[in-house]
Design a protein around this nucleic acid. Structure first.
Length: 490
RNA sequence: GGCUCCAUGGUCAAGCGGUUAAGACGUCGCCCUCUCAAGGCGAAAUCAGGGGUUCGAUUCCCCUUGGAGCUGCCA
């Protein structure tokens, strides 16, 4: 049995979109599971679309994703070069071979001419298809014009009758009438091949056994098989994958502001959560299992579980995965990951990061949300009196004022400013006055945070803030409530 | 428009002729609780429509509808 070789062949257009990442992931899993090779190839035959630095970004993203390839531009391999622009001289001889056999022909029609004709036909409501005009140029004349330096392209000569087809691992038998197929350009006027040609030559010469790519190629694959036939080559096994959508009608795209892999990482999603989520977007295991590391995916992945229809990228579920992955982190790992986010609002102040990490660990869904959750620690936000009224806590601004005054004295008297002693003394205050716990804790927490909800209760926040700041904020609260009261009475 | 492909709750989806049509996210309710989370328990919610085939269709076939991809000297 021949070796399994799959490849991921992105174009360096500037970013790694999530659909591409998923395609890469499946191609990787497919190869790795069977002890095969996973190859990275850069498809940069369109110099106009190339974005500087994009190639390096692809390497970086692949490594960040953990999708290490066995062969590729930056890691070498026996079938290089792995960048199409560096292979440019390899394509023409193959194209000329097809010209000789009649499976292709040179075409001297200019882009402008063709565009004009295309527009005319389209405007008339018709369907433009190249009319094989240049196929009928006598061979000698064509040869003379090619040698004269006249610009030309090489087109695939598609039979006018019959059908072209292939078997897809996911979609099954796919076929198209040759009559409706256009004579695609194989070699452009600039001498570089189009995707239509390069993918065939490269997949064959790199001995790719399984071509795994997006469905955008599904309907043109029969044409590629015609090329394999013309060369007398064995076509690879194909597997096309549905696109990833942002909603029911639009696919995910950077242009419309949808996040790329890189963006998600920056927003504080963890790599393994993204991979896990992406893997399940279009693939389902035999059982109900949800959590997979990359290596577990290598083991568990199977093509049976793949879905044929497009999946919508659902941020809620990713968020959930992310929070689950964060919960699985050790406290130490969490603290390391969270520290820069803590710093972003607390830097320069003294805070017990370890305790803060304990409080935040189970509450963090996305790292980027940390600052908004803890900013109140750095600075007491403005808040409305209504915050002191809480139905469920059975309290209001009047009671809060009474409680806060007593609580201030209680806290002031504390020698040991630990959470335990804070809690003990405040609970005692409640018992003595026959208040419910919440009737004491709520106003204290509000005075300390100015927030309707906080990561941690009154005593935990008091501890984090420290005694001085705690007393200060309680005093502010008392003042605030007294002002409000006198204002009400007048 | 033409061609190719797809179609189970809001989302990801299991199901591969006979099921009370799984599970997860999300939503809602209850419990727990010094707020919020987390956790526990529970609930609502799906086979796009119409024809066939069959004793029996979510499942097989056809049509309609809806959606996607392709229709470039882009990939």
């Amino acid at each position: 049995m021949t070796e399994i070789r799959t490849r991921f062949a992105p174009s360096p257009t500037g970013y790694m979109h999530l659909g591409g990442l998923r395609t890469a992931l499946y191609a990787y899993l497919f190869a790795k599971q069977r002890g095969g090779k996973f190859i990275l190839r850069i498809e940069d035959t369109d110099q106009e679309r190339e974005v500087p630095g994009a190639v390096a970004l692809i390497y970086e993203d692949m490594h960040k994703a953990g999708l290490d390839y066995d062969e590729g531009p930056d890691v070498g391999g026996d079938f290089g070069p792995y960048i199409q622009s560096e292979r440019k001289d390899m394509y023409r001889p193959f194209a000329m071979q097809l010209v000789d056999s009649g499976a292709a022909y040179p075409c001297f029609c200019t882009k402008e001419e063709l565009q004009a004709r295309r527009d005319a036909v389209t405007a008339a409501g018709g369907q433009f298809k190249y009319d094989k005009h240049c196929l009928h140029i006598p061979k000698e004349e064509a040869k003379r014009r090619m040698e004269s330096g006249e610009p030309y392209v090489i087109r695939q000569n598609i039979p006018e009758t019959g059908v072209a087809s292939f078997e897809d691992l996911l979609y099954g038998h796919v076929e198209t009438e040759c009559a409706i197929l256009d004579d695609n350009v194989l070699i452009k006027a600039d001498g570089l091949p189009t995707y239509n040609f390069a993918n065939v030559i490269d997949d064959h010469s790199m001995q790719i056994s399984h071509v795994i790519r997006g469905t955008e190629y599904l309907s043109s694959t029969p044409k590629y098989n015609l090329l394999y036939e013309a060369f007398g080559w064995q076509p690879p096994t194909y597997m096309h994958l549905p696109v990833v959508m942002k909603d029911a009608t639009r696919k995910l795209s950077k242009r419309h502001g949808d996040p790329t892999f890189e963006d998600l990482l920056e927003q504080g999603y963890v790599r393994d959560a993204i991979i896990n989520f992406i893997a399940l977007l279009g693939w389902a295991p035999k059982d109900d299992r949800e959590f997979f590391t990359l290596s577990e995916l290598v083991e568990g992945f199977d093509t049976d579980g793949l879905s044929k229809s497009p999946a919508i990228f659902n941020t809620d579920k990713l968020r959930w995965f992310n929070s689950e992955y964060i919960k699985k982190m050790s406290l130490e790992d969490y603290l390391n990951a969270a520290t820069p986010w803590f710093d972003s609002v607390l830097k320069g102040k003294e805070f017990d990061y370890h305790r803060l990490a304990e409080l935040m660990h189970g509450r963090t869904e996305i790292f980027s949300e940390i600052p908004a959750m803890i900013r109140f620690l750095a600075e007491l936000p403005d808040y409305a009196v209504d915050l002191y009224s809480h139905k469920k806590m059975k309290t209001n601004s009047d009671l809060s004022l009474t409680v806060l005054k007593l609580a201030l004295t209680t806290v002031e008297a504390l020698q040991d400013f630990s959470e335990d002693s804070l809690k003990e003394s405040l609970m005692q205050l409640a018992t003595e006055n026959e208040w419910k716990t919440g009737q004491v804790m709520w106003p204290v927490r509000v005075a300390l945070s100015g927030m309707p909800s906080t990561p941690g209760g009154a005593t935990e926040i008091a501890y984090l803030l420290g005694k001085d700041e705690t007393l200060q904020r309680m005093a502010i609260g008392i003042n605030f409530l007294e002002q409000f009261k006198s204002l009400q009475q007048s």
